[in-house]
Design a protein around this nucleic acid. Sequence first.
DNA 1: TTGAAAGCGTTACCAC
DNA 2: GTGGTAACGCTTTCAA
Lengths: 340, 340
Amino acid sequence: MAVTIKEIAEYANVSRGTVDRALHGRGGIRPEVEKRIRAIADSMGYKPNSAAKALSNLKKKLNIGLLLPSIHNPFFADLILGAQEAQRALADHGVELLLVEMRGYDIEEQVRRIDWLVSQKIDMLVLTPFDDSRIAEKINELTKQGIEVLTVNSDICNSDRVCYVGIDFERSGHIAAGLLGLINHRANVLIVNGSPKLMSHGQRVRGFMDTIQSRFPEVRLVATVVCNDDNFAAYDLLRQKLQDHPDIDMVYIVGEGITGVCAAISEFTLHQIDVICFDDVPHTKELFEEGKISATICQQPYQQGYLVVQQCYNRFIGSASRENAVIELENQIKIRESFY
Amino acid sequence: MAVTIKEIAEYANVSRGTVDRALHGRGGIRPEVEKRIRAIADSMGYKPNSAAKALSNLKKKLNIGLLLPSIHNPFFADLILGAQEAQRALADHGVELLLVEMRGYDIEEQVRRIDWLVSQKIDMLVLTPFDDSRIAEKINELTKQGIEVLTVNSDICNSDRVCYVGIDFERSGHIAAGLLGLINHRANVLIVNGSPKLMSHGQRVRGFMDTIQSRFPEVRLVATVVCNDDNFAAYDLLRQKLQDHPDIDMVYIVGEGITGVCAAISEFTLHQIDVICFDDVPHTKELFEEGKISATICQQPYQQGYLVVQQCYNRFIGSASRENAVIELENQIKIRESFY
DNA sequence: TTGAAAGCGTTACCAC
DNA sequence: GTGGTAACGCTTTCAA
């Protein structure tokens, strides 16, 4: 049986309360006593028992605010499912989840939603932040108030967020380029960028370019267009580019707009064009089945949601280190046969 | 606050002990009382509190036996790491792990190791079984003794094993074929089979053939060889086949023998040959770096180990359903850029 | 067949 | 600053 607080107390000739205070640095204890108890606990190899901790902490509720730009963005559906599943698993440990969804990329809107969540007395905030200094300042303000902030799916610079859960987007780009190389290392590529405002999209393009340049010198970049994550825009842009450059035989899509791209390809070309894109949303499977996309690179949204909620709880009960943490998930390549 | 046994007891005008007996079917209770209490618990939406359960069960130790054919098979290293990590996470819930490693595919040897583990008083057994009726019988015998058996990484037919944790090997084959199609849908393929004794290898070959036939009619199967998971055998076989069939431009390897195959390719051909293989072992990264393999399909060994131990614990404390369960992990495609 | 009570290890609170 | 003690929800044991 593992060593307990009670045993430490007996050995040190103090009460359990004193040991508790010493081990958790709660103050109200003579420094020398604290040191002595800490030393004893160390030497006995004390490890707090998580079950007992959880039971004892039951009374405390943990209210987690979750703020996502998920409206009209099907990617987030799985992330939400994961978060909800984690909440359910931790419900009998007192974890509650307050989800707020928003639409689009309006900075001020995000600030307002954060304020609203804070007014609902949340203990921690999880969000997919826009990469803007106003959001960073807001995060720092919350941290000062004692509300820890975690980012999920996308990170933000210069803020006091305590944890990021998500993938390495540059690597996403590297992998996309690697796939391109496998499929056709002499491709004529059109890059369709979603939203240049999003850090993640920029990273995916940069990573892609890096690998193309260093490993596939025969690849030709025909053009780069920006569709603002819009299928109609993507369709129009593709029509034009396909007509101007009939030699395009590969399209790399970062972000939304995939169905628009595929529709244009079907309509305006006869030859095979390989499409490499990201994420697994409701349309993806169908597009694979119709042979319209060749590969997609996924970022495990369900796990992202699950892990970030779990991480909140771990920090809450103090079983996660107090340090800043980055929980990095793996990019997952999927092809048609991953689904059938 | 969630509803507790105490509340149910008060509402039903019985003691907590009675409620406990009723809810867990421990017997020694009037059937009508049991029914009434069950109904009340249901109507109140009772959910046992996992933390309390864990704390109360602390005294009970759970000894898990883990038997793997892992000697000289680097694939299992990560699986073992995952199992050990899960054990560590559950150590303060009383979970112990007894690992026995064996080498090769000797049925009787596996039976003997199982017997030895049983003699060590394990409560549950996790193993990667050989697909043989003698092993199935052994499993059924243990089940009768009250030792639940779980399979990991590979499954077995006609046995009472309560859970399988692993991947769908036929899908592995489908995915391999899909990758082949992306890389070169007019390939001349050599199939290198590891060990025909292993169910998983057979499934990977079958799945591959299925997809090739249905989706890539232009692919030509040059030959199939069996290397018995041996690099030297693989090397010799490859040398011969490459000389007999200089048009081979794709090799599909199921199981071990990859370094042997790659060595032969480097020595005996000048043109590009794409290699598709399985798993991520120490050599894999290097082979990618040298451009000798194009893609590998991984089966998340770490997760397999972690999840199977977790599943043991869940069954032990009764939070997993009593049904047979299959926990299926996803096949993960990795290419060079997944590593760099 | 049932009830009462003693744990499990930790935290929190109230005395001193 | 400290010690004592009552929770937290569940299981188990011993009486009745």
